[in-house]
């Protein structure tokens, strides 16, 4: 029924990377996320699916505190990464975001050169001691972003001059350059054509070896192809969270079944 997955769906790690417990999010008076508890494993791809406006992106943005930038947004509950409460007063969101990288829906390279795009994170975090080390980080990141071969001859061309799919892979390379432990992806393929999408999906599967990846997607096929765990959100509730196989073949909740068979959404 769904496309074959790239890799075996066996669970390679059971270590919990992110533990969310009783998370509530309010936008002013709107209750956007209602009591969501979920455990996200290390070295695994977790997909968030659900109809538009169900809160999956909002929840994703809680995991690196990007919601802090919205004045009216209020987060309650407990989110721990490696056992540390990320909403603790002592936590600097800037440090958190270096550890939890993010890739956005629309490719958003800086209007600078490809090299500077990737080097920006390492530069501000002081990851390289000299130019040679920085060059090395840039090359390694672009290779991980599966875009090195396409851009190695024009590292000083503007990143905005690339095609949409290349830009998105550049953004992924930029995100991994800061050596995060978790990679959040907010509908990374929704602005891309099918070929670019499959390239990015392959890349996500690669990244699973080193990172814990959380991906928000509108495409159920994509969730089925790339993820090992899937969470289904509906109207701000986490309806069901289980192994991807199980969600798509044997959903427990009638709402999940309605959604994946196309009756709601």
């Amino acid at each position: 029924m769904y496309d074959a997955p790239f890799s075996e769906k066996n669970v390679t790690s059971n270590a919990v990377k992110i533990a969310a417990d009783g998370v509530q999010v309010y936008y002013g008076d709107t209750h956007a996320i209602k009591d969501v508890s979920v455990n996200i494993n290390d070295k695994m791809v977790t997909a968030f699916i659900g109809p538009s406006g169900c809160g999956k992106s909002t929840f994703l943005r809680c995991l690196n505190r990007m919601n802090d930038t919205i004045d009216i947004c209020r987060v309650e509950g407990d989110i721990r990464i490696d056992g540390e409460d990320i909403y603790d007063k002592r936590v600097d969101p800037v440090q958190l975001r270096a550890k939890v990288g993010m890739v956005f829906q629309k490719p958003n390279p800086f209007p600078k050169s490809i090299y500077d795009n990737v080097a920006y994170g390492p530069r501000i975090h002081g990851l390289a001691r000299n130019k040679a080390e920085l060059d090395e980080i840039v090359e390694k990141s672009l290779r991980r972003g599966a875009i090195w071969d396409e851009v190695k001859d024009r590292l000083h061309a503007p990143g905005t001059g690339l095609s949409g799919g290349q830009q998105q892979r550049l953004c992924i390379a930029r995100a991994v350059a800061t050596e995060p432990e978790v990679l959040l992806m907010d509908e990374p393929c929704s602005a891309l054509d099918p070929i670019a999408t499959s390239q990015v999906e392959e890349l996500i599967d690669e990244l699973r070896r080193d990172y814990s990846v959380v991906i928000v997607t509108h495409s159920m096929q994509q969730a089925a192809r790339v993820s090992q765990k899937t969470a289904f959100f509906h109207l701000g509730n986490l309806v069901e969270f289980d192994d991807t196989d199980k969600i798509f073949t044997n959903p427990q909740d009638p709402r999940t079944e309605s959604y994946i068979t196309g009756r709601i959404g």
Partner: peptide, 27 residues
Amino acid sequence: VPPSIRDAALGLGASKTQSVFHHVLPL
């Protein structure tokens, strides 16, 4: 200046000031 540029900088762990002075202000 498109908000996506601010998001990109913040998402990489730039502080607010860094995102403003490195990216928003030049644009």
